[in-house]
């Protein structure tokens, strides 16, 4: 760039140059329209308006709050309140309706499923999986097998009060630690594990004493799981004859369960989610696929 800043008149266009030169290339002076400059000044003045209207300057312990006293937190609270008011048309209907009615009304059903889906993703998905598919120790909610009952009322009760939770009305029932508490001897445990596998037509180890297993089962397990091992939903004792296994169907896993017992916990959501949300969640879980009449 030349340093003399001399102005030239460009020969072809007859327009003055700015005096800047790069290896012989000169810049024509094409003046901007003046209103362009005015708009630039106007934006500066406009920005001063922001200092007055909105929170802007940090002070020692606080900040300037602006004449409208606006803040982002209050704005989101207001927005959520507006949203809640808009949804009240449907949420009020759901709050007032018995659970079965929600299922049979297509409008309420689609709203409850949408609300339930959102609440499920926020609260339930960490254990039960995004689509309710569950994982080892956390029941699959999409299949047709239920530990505590798959009717709408059963699901709602489980949601409100939890399982083995801190809620007094929660579901209660524990699989004892037969091995750790020295209730059963090791050969009995192995025999009953083989017997249980045979109930759901799974292969058993060679030379397993199924007769001994059956006897052990009748004396120790039938009290909860039932004489025909079909389970008991009152106390959450699983059906041992079906194809669904919460912790797995391997012999080792079953033996481990008999030795150490089982007692996983589902929290009570009663105090944490409002009743309409719990109803929607119950409907959502019910409609995932396993709901029972």
């Amino acid at each position: 760039m030349s340093s003399d800043h001399k102005k030239h008149i460009d020969a072809v266009t007859g327009v003055a140059t700015t005096g800047h030169e790069w290896d012989g290339v000169r810049e024509l002076n094409m003046p901007l329209p003046r209103w362009w400059l005015w708009i630039f000044y106007a934006t500066i003045i406009w920005s001063i308006g922001y200092w007055i209207v909105y929170p802007a300057w940090p002070l020692v312990t606080t900040h300037t709050s602006g004449v409208f006293n606006w803040n982002a937190r209050q704005a989101i609270i207001d927005d959520m309140a507006t949203l809640k008011a808009q949804r009240a048309v449907m949420t009020d209907r759901i709050a007032a309706a018995p659970l079965e009615d929600i299922l049979s009304d297509s409008q309420m059903l689609s709203f409850a499923r949408a609300q339930g889906r959102a609440a499920f993703a926020d609260n339930c998905a960490p254990c039960h999986g995004a689509g309710g598919g569950g994982m080892r120790g956390y029941p699959n909610l999409v299949d047709d097998d239920w530990l505590w009952g798959g009717k709408l009322q059963d699901i709602a009760l489980t949601l409100r009060h939890g399982i083995r939770s801190t809620d007094d009305k929660g579901r209660m029932g524990v699989m004892p630690a037969f091995g750790r508490d020295k209730i059963l001897e090791r050969p009995d445990i192995l025999a009953v594990a083989d017997y249980v596998r045979s109930l759901s037509t799974l292969s058993v180890t060679k030379g397993a004493d199924l007769a001994r297993g059956k006897k052990v089962f009748a004396e120790n397990c039938a009290a909860c799981h039932g004489e025909n091992a079909k389970g008991n939903r009152e106390i959450g004792a699983p059906d041992l004859t079906d194809q669904i296994w919460l912790f797995g169907s391997g012999r080792d896993v079953i033996v481990e369960g008999i030795i150490n017992g089982r007692g996983s916990v589902m929290p009570a959501w009663g105090g944490r989610l409002d009743d309409t949300t719990i109803k929607s969640l119950a409907v959502y879980v019910h409609t995932l696929g396993g709901g029972q009449k």
Partner: peptide, 18 residues
């Protein structure tokens, strides 16, 4: 199709998709 779970086994051994 349901993304998760892709399929589910029912108590009687049948496979179901949602």
């Amino acid at each position: 199709h349901d993304r998760n779970p892709l399929f589910v086994r029912l108590a009687d051994g049948a496979i179901r998709n949602g």
